[in-house]
Design a protein around this nucleic acid. Sequence first.
DNA 1: GATCGATGTAAGATATTTTTTACATCAATG
DNA 2: CATTGATGTAAAAAATATCTTACATCGATC
Lengths: 72, 72
Amino acid sequence: MSKRPPITNRVRQLREEHGGLSQAALGDIVGVTRQTIIAIEQGRYSPSLETSFRIARHFGVGLEDVFGWEGD
Amino acid sequence: MSKRPPITNRVRQLREEHGGLSQAALGDIVGVTRQTIIAIEQGRYSPSLETSFRIARHFGVGLEDVFGWEGD
DNA sequence: GATCGATGTAAGATATTTTTTACATCAATG
DNA sequence: CATTGATGTAAAAAATATCTTACATCGATC
């Protein structure tokens, strides 16, 4: 069934702010595929904590600067 | 295959600090089973971002107050 | 206008998380 | 000492995340 998780994310925005890093390039860096980045940006599923940390740390920010909890 | 993720967590400690909340009770509250809480506490896998947020918010703290990235 | 890079969709396979069920131990307590 | 609540282990099944591959569109540029 897989619902849409109540989580927001700024991955796309952060990519743009970092020199227009492509989805494929970010995927390579954090160790997932381009498809995974697409799905995360589209909010199709909530990534693992590990992938989330890798993305945040690559941009040099905290987890909650990238991913937000709806209802906060 | 499933390696141990480079993530630390203070779930057990937070449970104790919150009146000795049991694993089963925490699981009920955040919507997962007792087995899932056990596995998370033991670091057997990295939970979904959604489960992580629910745990943190139940204790009234930020995600990174519960889960830490080794290598920070 | 052919090519190239970035993004998107989709489907089937694989990996990992989560559930379910069952049983074991230990501390506390009746 | 029987029971009860909390924790632990284990294994199979179910759910979900991730990968792989393939094809389509769009904007830029040669």
